[in-house]
Design a protein around this nucleic acid. Sequence first.
DNA 1: CAGTGTCAAGGTGGA
DNA 2: TCCACCTTGACACTG
Length: 313
Amino acid sequence: MIKRFSYKPLNVAVDIDAMRIGYPCINRTLDCSANKTFRLKSYSEERLVETVDNNLRCLKEILAFNVDHDIYFFRITSDLVPFASHEINTFNWQNHFSGAFQELGDFIDERDMRVAMHPDQFIVLNSIHEHVYERSLAELRYHAEMLDLMHVDATAKIQIHVGGVYDDKEASMERFAGRYNELDDQIKKRLVVENDDVSYTIEDCIQIHEMTGIPVVFDYLHHHVKRSDGSLNEILRRVDATWSDYDGLPIYDYSSQEPGERAGKHAEHIDRHDFTDFLEKTKEHAFDVMLEIKDKEKSAIDAIEAARQKDLL
DNA sequence: CAGTGTCAAGGTGGA
DNA sequence: TCCACCTTGACACTG
């Protein structure tokens, strides 16, 4: 088993001897949700503060649960601050919650955890609509500000997809690259791009890396659904090369296919055999893996156990 | 109080 | 041209 490394903020390589396995956003065991929100119609500053207070408290609880279960990778929900980038929100949440964010960041840092975020489908950097592009920028700003307020290093990534095709893929990829290159460092240092199951393959993402330097997240199931040519290991070697020490280990997203459902549909629970098979196949690579499985932490706990049993962790 | 239609936001592809 | 789907929870209204 090869050694795996993580990079602390001091830029000193620390041997942690194991990949991090994580899950996204929600913990179903705890009765505490960091995704609490409310309707735009019910917006008030009071409601916002109350909701964010709850969300930050629950995020802390979830992270503590994770440490107790040896889970060192977690995707933070984009709903942590509802309407953060919406024009209705004129409240200085950054300032108001800076202490709480810092506290969360310290917790993450002290335990050598890694976090990431994944803004949802409405964030389209390469949109042909100016207003969509501008809203996307504002939303990316919110994500970056939040991670900055936690003072987590540049290994805490924000992952997005390339976006739309608009009947001209080449032009759309170039538009993505042009807009990425114009971003300021606050966003750029965290942004990474991931293959999707409809439009952009891992090869496309690697091509965009060549145009921009952006690191590439490998999504295993999307790759399975919308395949590029080339062997898995060959592609992963190229993916790994898009990540520098500054960015931390490459991130792979893994999910099992739900049996008997549409190709690409995420499974209810992890298929342990399929997962350890995936780890066997990717043995030569050092990475952190995010499990996109519906039952979340239950699958993560199972995955860690399964990997340990086969001496893959 | 349980059931359920709907929620800030986009893009694709099938009907 | 329109609508379901993505992925998903949870809000908030209705009966």
